[in-house]
């Protein structure tokens, strides 16, 4: 196991994501931050608390469960997916939706998330923020705001831990 980011470094890269968002999205934008379960949800909450003062109209927030939209839902796999609820209690139509996930790898989760969101409404713009872009994308998807961009060997797994669910903040590489 190798540590890619420690708690302090996670704070720093979240700060960088926030900076990228502030320089790219005008403050008067009608914005909704939507985190993909489960680590994306926590990252979304942290981004929201930092960006709350910046957006003049406030920020709506929601959580997206993509299980029912996964492209491998009918493929046999090691661990069965667990369906949980999507909590988006507002209309996303005509808003800027900032989609948030912890790690960008194949791009398949983001594809599923986009399909799931489009079934809920028609956003004006959709943007993607991730804590780590580890490379080896399989679909033509890239992130707009990235905390750490790095190339991790395809055989390895990048795992984000947050204090809310995993005792401490850190990003590790497992073989």
């Amino acid at each position: 196991m190798e540590i890619l980011l420690n708690a302090e470094q996670i704070n720093d890269v979240i700060g960088q994501i926030v900076e990228q968002i502030r320089s790219d999205i005008p403050a008067d934008t009608d914005v909704a931050i939507i985190g993909i379960r489960s680590r994306g949800e926590i990252l979304a909450q942290r981004l929201q608390s930092t960006l709350e003062d910046y957006f003049s109209g406030g920020i709506l927030n929601g959580t997206l469960d993509i299980t029912l939209y996964r492209d491998d839902v009918n493929e046999p796999k090691e661990v069965q997916p667990t369906v949980r609820s999507t909590e988006i209690d507002f209309d996303i139509t005509d808003k800027l939706v900032l989609l948030v996930d912890d790690v960008l790898h194949t791009g398949r989760s983001i594809r599923a998330a986009m399909d799931a969101l489009i079934d809920l409404g028609r956003p004006r713009l959709m943007r993607l923020a991730v804590l780590v872009d580890r490379g080896h994308h399989e679909y033509p998807i890239s992130a707009d705001y990235v905390g750490l961009k790095t190339d991790v060997d395809e055989s390895k797994l990048v795992s984000v831990h947050f204090i809310e669910t995993d005792e401490k903040d850190r990003v590790i590489i497992k073989s």
Binding site: T67, L68, Y69, V83, R84, T86, A116, D119, G121
Partner: peptide
């Protein structure tokens, strides 16, 4: 996870 489907604009999942 399936409870709120009746209030969605598109009530189906694939």
């Amino acid at each position: 996870g399936f409870e709120k489907f009746s209030t969605r604009s598109i009530k189906k999942v694939p």
